[in-house]
Design a protein around this nucleic acid. Sequence first.
DNA 1: TCTTAAACGAGACGGTACGTCTAGTCTTCTA
DNA 2: TAGAAGACTAGACGTACCGTCTCGTTTAAGA
Lengths: 216, 216, 216, 216
Amino acid sequence: VADVEKTIVPHAQRGRPRSERVRSAVLAAAAELLVEGGIDAVTVEAIAARAQVSKTTIYKWWPSRGHVMLESFFSSTRDTIAVAEGASLEESLVFQVAALARLFGETRSGPLMGDLVAAAQADAEIRAALQERWLRPRRQVVVGLLRDAVRRGELDPRVDVDAAADQLFAPVYHRLLFGHEPLHGALAETLVRQLLAGLRHLPPDRAARPPRTTRR
Amino acid sequence: VADVEKTIVPHAQRGRPRSERVRSAVLAAAAELLVEGGIDAVTVEAIAARAQVSKTTIYKWWPSRGHVMLESFFSSTRDTIAVAEGASLEESLVFQVAALARLFGETRSGPLMGDLVAAAQADAEIRAALQERWLRPRRQVVVGLLRDAVRRGELDPRVDVDAAADQLFAPVYHRLLFGHEPLHGALAETLVRQLLAGLRHLPPDRAARPPRTTRR
Amino acid sequence: VADVEKTIVPHAQRGRPRSERVRSAVLAAAAELLVEGGIDAVTVEAIAARAQVSKTTIYKWWPSRGHVMLESFFSSTRDTIAVAEGASLEESLVFQVAALARLFGETRSGPLMGDLVAAAQADAEIRAALQERWLRPRRQVVVGLLRDAVRRGELDPRVDVDAAADQLFAPVYHRLLFGHEPLHGALAETLVRQLLAGLRHLPPDRAARPPRTTRR
Amino acid sequence: VADVEKTIVPHAQRGRPRSERVRSAVLAAAAELLVEGGIDAVTVEAIAARAQVSKTTIYKWWPSRGHVMLESFFSSTRDTIAVAEGASLEESLVFQVAALARLFGETRSGPLMGDLVAAAQADAEIRAALQERWLRPRRQVVVGLLRDAVRRGELDPRVDVDAAADQLFAPVYHRLLFGHEPLHGALAETLVRQLLAGLRHLPPDRAARPPRTTRR
DNA sequence: TCTTAAACGAGACGGTACGTCTAGTCTTCTA
DNA sequence: TAGAAGACTAGACGTACCGTCTCGTTTAAGA
C-alpha cells in the first residue's frame, strides 16, 4: 500500500501541514455565534474574526457557510445511534426516537438542525450531506429493526418500512421546524405505540371489528 | 366600530387608493423568480425590477422578503382543505394527506413551502404565520376527524390525536425538505393505513380479513 | 428649448437627487488620506470610512481609485494657467513654469501628481485624462506663446515648439518624480533663460545684449 | 575585505549555496510577465509560479515586488552610457540622449521604467535605488561633458549644468510617462540643438556662426 | 374644477457581507 | 542551510442586496 501511495502521490507530505487549531476554532466560533445571535449572526466574516482565522482560510476548507455549520453540527452533536442489546422492538424504537427528540428539544443541536434544513433548501450539496451523513445512518438502524421484526413474524410483511420510519422520525423534525407542538422525549413513546398497535380501538372481546369492514 | 372610526378619522379614505396592480404584480414576480432561480433569486430588488414596482412600495406593504413569499404562497396555492361528505374516516384522512403530498410533490408550491420553512427558521413572524394560516387549519380538519372517530368509538380513546396528526402529515414535509424518499399521492394511503391499523402482524387465524386484501 | 428637452429627456429629474455632500466629502477624504499616509493609504475602503460615504456610492460615481484621485487633484489645485497681459515672452514663460514648479514643490499637489503619474502607468483612462485635462491646456499656452514669438520673428522659425515645451516643463516633472534635484520656483528662470539663449558662451564683444541682462 | 570575512566567519560557506538558477529565473519571469500582462500581472505569486521558485525564496532575496522589477530592469537593459572617443560635445550629448530615447521608445525597457517610476512614488527605497543606480551615472556623464565644455570655454560659465542635464533627459521621461508626444531617437538631436544654441532667431547678418553649421 | 393627501416610481444613499485576490509570514519536509 | 511547498493572517478589492431616504408624479376622494 505504501508503494502504491508513493507512486500515486509522489510528495506525500510537503509544505506546512494543515493546522488543527484552525479547524476547531472555526467550528467552535460558528457554534458560539449561532447560540448567541441565531443563524443570521453566523457570517463567514464573524467566524473569521472570532476564530482569529482569515476568511481565505475558511473558504479554502469549507465551500460555504452552510458547510461550516454542517461540520459544526456534526462535531458538536453526540452520537445518538447506539442500540441497546437485548431490547424489545418497541424499546429499541422508543430509544432511537427519544434520543432524537431530546437532542432537538433540549440541546442547541435543535436550532442548528433547523438552520441546516433551511440551508439545505437552497444548497443541494448540503441537502445531500445531510441525507447521507445524518438521516441515512439513523434511518438504517430503524429500518433494520423493522425488517428484523418482519422476519421474525412480529410485524406484518406488507409493512412499508420506509414510510414507517418516516412516521416515527418525521414528527420530531416537524415539531422542531414548525414549533406547533412541544418537543420532548415522551413523544417517542406515543409515536411508537400508536404506530405499532394502530389507532383502532380494540374492544376486549375483539369481536367483529366494524371499522375494518367499512374501509375503502 | 365603523362609527368610531368615522368619528376619529374624518377622512376615512383620502388620497390615492392602494393599487391592486402592485399587489398582484409583486406576488406574481416573486413566484416567477422562485421558479426560475430558486429562493436565492427572490430578492426584493429583483421583485421590484420585474414587477415594475419600487422597492419603497414593497417595503410599505410587506415587512420582509419572507412575507412576500408567504403571501405569494397563499395566493398561488389552491385550497386543499375541502372535505368530502359521507366519506369514511380512512377515506377522509387519505384525501387530506394525498392532497398535501400531491401539492408538494407535483406543483411549485413544494419548493415554495421548502423556502418558507427555511425562512421560518430565522424569522419568528413567518414561523407564526405559517403555523396559524397554513398548518393549523389543516391539522384542525384531521384532528376533528380523529376526535369524531374516538367519540364514535371507532378509535381508541387513549389516542394522542396531535401526535397522530403529525404521523400523517409530518412524513410529507419530511420528504419535501430532505428529499430522501419520493413524494407522491400514493404515500397517503400507506401512511393512513399503517397508522390506523398498526404495524403488528395479526395471527393467521384472523388473517383472512378483507380490509388487507382491498389494499391498493 | 424646453420642448426639446422634454422630448429628449423625458424624465428630467427623477428620484433622489445626487448629494453634493458625497462628492466633496469623498474628494476631501482622498486628499487628506494622501497627505497623511501616502498613496497606499488612499484605499476606497478608507475614503468611504472617512467620508462617511458607502463604497457602493463611490464606485457608482468614480470607476476606480485613480479617478477619485484625479478629480481630487483637479478640485484641490488652483488654476495655474493665467497669463499676464503685456508681458514679454521670457516673462510669460517664466511665469508658467514657475507656477508649476511652485505648485509641485510647495503644495501637496506635488505628491498627488506623482501618484497620478504612477496610476497612469497602469490605467490608460487616467493617462488620457491627465493628458487632456492637465497637460494639454498648459502646453497649449506655452506652445501658443512660442508660435507667436516665431511669427513675430523673435524666435527661429525652425524651432520645434513641442520639444521646446518639453524642455521647459519636463524638468519640473522629472524632479518631482525622481527627487534627484530640488524643486523650486527659481528653477523656472534658469530653464527659460538657458533654452531661449542657449548654453553657448558668447564672446565678450557681444556681452551687453539685453536678453542676458534681464536675467535674475 | 575578503580575507577579513573569511577570518571572522569560520564557516564561510556552509550549507547549500545560493542557487543562481533562482535569481535568473525570477528576473526572467518578472520580465516576461510584464511584457505579457502589464505591471498588474507582475505579482510575486505569479513570478513564483512561473519561475518555479517559492515565494519565500523571493522574499528572502528581494525586499519587495518593486525590487524584483528594479533588478529585472537592470539585468535586461543593455548599458547606454558608453561614450565615444573624440566626439564633439554636441555629438556626445546626442548620443547619450538618443540612446535613452531609443531604449524607452523601442524596447520593453520603456514600460518597465514607467512602472518603476510608478513604484518609486510609493516606495522610497526604490526611488533611491533608481536615483543612485540609474539616473546618477547617466547624468554624471552628461554633466561631466558640460563641465568640460565650460572649462574649455565652449559653454557659458554661468550655465546651470544640472538644469541643463534635465533639459536634455527629462523630455524623454516626460514623453514616456505621459505619452503626449511620440518618443524616438530623432528627438535627441532637436533637444541638444535647441538647448545648445537657444531658440532665438539670429538675424541673417550673423548667420555664418559655426554652431549652427556644425549641427548634426 | 380644484385641492389635497396618500400611493407610487425612480434612484441615491449608508451599510453589511460576500467571495476573491495579493502581500507577506510561518512551518514543515527535502535536497 | 537553501529551497520548495503550501498553510496561514491581514486586509483591500469590487459586487450584491438590504432597508431607508428624498424627490417628483400620479390618482381619486372631497371641497
